[in-house]
Design a protein around this nucleic acid. Structure first.
Lengths: 398, 398
DNA sequence: TGCACTTTGGCAACAGCGTTGCTTAAGTGG
DNA sequence: CCACTTAAGCAACGCTGTTGCCAAAGTGCA
């Protein structure tokens, strides 16, 4: 559980790995925490309602708060410029409900996707819509100084090009605050430690081992920075983008990894190690894998792809996915990555067939659906930006 | 996550599967919720402190609440008879701290373990200590009426024999309330639905399919009832009993199942299906399993046990456990069940060896420890009782 | 033995949360 | 035009944890 946060303001975002807390450090709640909890709850519902908006009374019904409480809270949010009135609904015999809408420009976040050979930066608004984007080639082997320099430069370009330009177009009380960048979310291939923002053993680039990327970037940029694995960021983006329940995002590219969303939150584990789906053994004493073990899903799956046997690759992937579905009672499997994008239908069909077979044997109800994840190319960068937006909407651990 | 509960009192425990809530229904928080959240937090720390007790100031430090707030809350808890002063600590140069302790007799809960051929009832106090116990043979095939009759009778015996007798021994303000039974937790082999308290396809006993066990028992007993899988109850009991972090309890008896504790809470999934560890495929196209599939861990493991090859059984179990550790970033593996109990050292050694091999290959830090779970025979029944105590201590979803 | 000092923990006043009771605003329908 | 319905704000309220202050209960040195 998460619980409702500590007393601190709540808008700050990232906080340094604090406290000696053994295991789960649950904190007491005061009135400030209560206030920000409820505000975040309403903001989350407003975000989900999107451009359509939502009325005060529906907010009250969905949260269990009294209509008067919703009025008070939304009034504060309006004063802060985060919410605005936007028309009315049709009357049902009395005064029509006023529709409230999130103000997208009330805040922005930067998402950075660092891949082995490429860098992608997006600037998104509160609703997650992309307001600016840049791509650049990248060589992780060029060293920290060169890479960080490029990253800072690209981020500066995107922010300057979009937020500043838009600042004039949206006048109003404190226009500067409205375009404020809440911070930067960084997503990259593991292994890494999201709680301390430190890299571990970046494959093929020993110089990055133990590099405190989060703190270093935060120092150079002067805004909060959050670090996470690429698959976790993608999963978070999908969860925010509307996918509900517990699901797994399986990413098949040059490797095979997963992002897990359980109970509405990304499950990372204490060492950000969760989601190591590819090195699940599904064939005891099978063919050797690059990890040193034998019979890993990744090895079997990629070997089949290399042979051109997509159906077998999909079947193997499906068997691994079935193990995961049974172990965690997952509602949905989403597929992504370059290899899947090359033959989406065959992968969906093959994985789905394996899952259906499992479900039928067990006599379980409806089989678990399989789909291709949306927004492939920018998904990780957009999800990275959500690492910063999530706390605003009450997803402290999401 | 969990969040802080809805406005309702908080002491009631089970609530019927309410609301049309799509996915996670997060509710707003009011002052009542805040109050019970903080009270539960303190009670949880007091429970962990056990017989040793804990001072007000340490409670304040650990929760982040002000000392004055802790004083107010603990004063309420003392008025309710749940907490008492118990001596003082050594002075550090000023007034010594007063030690507070949970009053074990302030509440009791019944735990019921329904197995295929046996029934076990325990009565535990607030600290989880067993205050009464009964065992009886059981035939699930005898039909609902006979089974429920036996269950109600056995529970009545345990409660009458322990709580009532103790009621006189602990005089004080409203002694009746102090021995109040909060409710009954029921644990049994799956599949079942813990949110609705309904059974599904009890293996070999089709008559129980769809039986609303929770509501039927609640009706006959007149107290709240909570239903869960036996492995989940055992895992909950272990979590309360002091195991920390994320862990998996692997139960190897006539079958192979698991209870997962992630982020301090039992992970059940939407359909109580999580923990299906035994039918994880680790040998594609391997030997057939009773479930209709091929190469399941359960089939391989139990076949090895039947051959008398315990080392191979442990190795197979370890490979399955390694998959789980990697997928979820688990901190600890606990083993239990009759088959493990017969040769505990060899299982621990074999499973540990498989996990160590994985950890070494990946260059991960310290390997994941493997231990035998404590309190074998009564563990499930005691965990079942915790299903009712958990909400008192702020583990609504635990 | 007495006095200065430290630390604990309760009392009283307070700001701020959601709630309740009531009033005003803004529609529909006969 | 008026009765009725529904939405939403104002004011008073109860209750939360917080703050400022003070009594209680120890230690330790003169």
């Amino acid at each position: 559980m998460a619980g409702i946060g500590a007393g601190a303001g709540g808008r700050s975002g990232a906080r340094p790995g604090s406290g000696p807390g053994p295991a789960s450090r649950v904190t007491g709640a005061n009135l400030l925490a209560l206030r920000s909890h409820n505000a975040a709850l309403l903001l989350d519902l407003l975000r989900r309602a999107g451009r359509m908006g939502i009325s005060r009374l529906e907010l009250a019904e969905r949260t269990g708060l009294t209509p008067q409480a919703v009025s008070k809270i939304t009034a504060r949010l309006r004063d802060d410029g985060m919410v605005t009135e936007a028309g009315r609904q049709a009357s049902t015999g009395g005064k029509p409900r006023t529709v409230l809408r999130l103000v997208p420009e009330a805040g922005h976040a930067v998402g950075l996707h660092l891949d082995r050979d490429e860098l992608r930066v997006v600037l998104v608004d509160l609703t997650g819509a992309v307001a600016g984007e840049r791509r650049a080639a990248l060589d992780l082997g060029a060293g920290a100084e060169a890479v960080l320099g490029a990253v800072v430069a690209e981020i500066g370009e995107v922010v300057a090009g979009s937020a500043a330009g838009r600042s004039g177009a949206v006048p109003g009380p404190d226009a500067a605050a409205r375009t404020a960048v809440l911070g930067v979310g960084v997503a990259m291939p593991g292994p890494l430690d999201h709680t301390h923002g430190v890299l571990h053993r970046v494959t093929g680039f020993p110089e990055w081992d133990g590099f405190p990327l989060r703190d270093e970037l935060a120092r150079r940029l002067g805004v909060p920075v959050v670090l996470d694995k690429d698959t976790n960021a993608a999963a978070l983006g999908l969860a925010v983008g509307g996918e509900v329940g517990a699901f797994a995002y399986l990413h098949l590219g040059t490797g095979l990894g997963a992002g897990l969303v359980l109970g509405g939150a990304v499950h990372r584990g204490a060492r950000t190690g969760a989601g190591e789906f590819g090195h699940q053994v599904i064939q005891l004493d099978g063919p050797p894998c690059s990890c040193g073990n034998r019979g890993c899903v990744e090895a079997l799956c990629l070997a089949a792809v290399a042979r051109g046997d997509v159906d077998e690759a999909a079947r193997v992937l499906g068997e691994g996915a079935a193990n995961l579905v049974w172990l965690l009672d997952i509602d949905l499997i989403l597929l992504g990555g370059r290899t899947v994008a090359a033959e989406p239908e065959r992968f969906v069909r093959g994985v789905g067939a394996a899952l259906d077979a499992h479900a039928q044997r067990a006599g379980a109800g409806s089989p678990v659906p399989v789909r291709v994840a949306s927004g492939e190319a920018r998904a990780v960068a957009e999800g990275a930006a959500q690492l910063l937006l999530a706390p605003l909407f009450g997803r402290a651990e999401a």
